[in-house]
């Protein structure tokens, strides 16, 4: 028997990702969780982390978590709680051109708010640029920092890791932060124009 794509490459298939993405109607409403956990392993911290009961009770420890989309507020608590770093939050209603993606980031240096970042997909390929919109540092040694990045809309279900981008023009101070933001915004907007089109922009 041929092993599936996930177990031979470590990268989930499109069908697997589609299976954990909420329906279009829910996606437009605001932030939602994406639990990229496709294998039964003995684990339950995500269920216990959610204050809204949005992760349904597990009958067995090895069950794969299921989400109640009506209850999920996209708060992101579970992103830092998942021991497998398999949970992300995506907000496609953030703006017309950009989405927000919450990414667990256990690396140094941790980007600061406003820093430009490269966005990487599930295979570690650089797929675009974004901006660290909000950074929730984890307290050492237990915490997992979470970086909420602003990303071009069409990358909402693609970008799953980040790398700090060169801060060429950046000096300490808000003004240059802003400049970097704008530069990066421009790059993002440019990319979304040439890309497949933001999912949020498409109305049916």
């Amino acid at each position: 028997m041929k092993p599936d794509m996930l177990m031979s490459t470590g990268v989930p298939s499109k069908q697997q990702i589609d299976g954990v993405t909420p329906p279009e109607s829910r996606r437009k409403q605001g932030p939602f969780v994406v639990i990229e956990c496709f294998q039964e392993i003995p684990c339950d911290p995500c269920y216990h982390s959610c204050r809204f009961g949005a992760i349904k009770p597990l009958e067995s420890l090895n069950d794969i978590p299921q989400v109640d989309w009506d209850r999920c507020t996209g708060c992101g608590i579970c992103v830092a709680a998942c021991p497998g770093l398999a949970i992300f939050v995506v907000d496609e209603a953030f703006s017309d051109t950009e989405c927000l993606i919450a990414i667990p980031y256990e690396f140094v240096p941790l980007p600061e708010k406003g820093d430009p970042v490269y966005l990487l997909d599930r295979e570690g390929r650089r797929v675009g640029q974004g901006v660290a919109h909000r950074v929730v540092p984890g307290r050492k040694p237990q915490g997992t920092p979470v970086v909420w990045v602003r990303a071009p809309n069409e990358l909402s279900m693609e970008a799953r890791h980040l790398l700090p981008a060169e801060k060429a023009s950046k000096k300490a101070g808000q003004a240059s932060d802003k400049a970097a933001d704008q530069a990066s915004d421009k790059a993002s907007a440019g990319e979304s124009l040439t890309g497949k089109g933001g999912m949020n922009c498409v109305s049916r």
């Binding site: 996930l6 470590g10 990268v11 989930p12 990229e36 294998q39 497998g84 770093l85 570690g124």
Partner: peptide, 16 residues
């Protein structure tokens, strides 16, 4: 096939 947990494998693939 990968011997360990898929989530661990996905974590390192994202790093490239």
């Amino acid at each position: 096939k990968i011997g360990g947990y898929a989530v661990h494998a996905s974590k390192i693939r994202r790093l490239g």
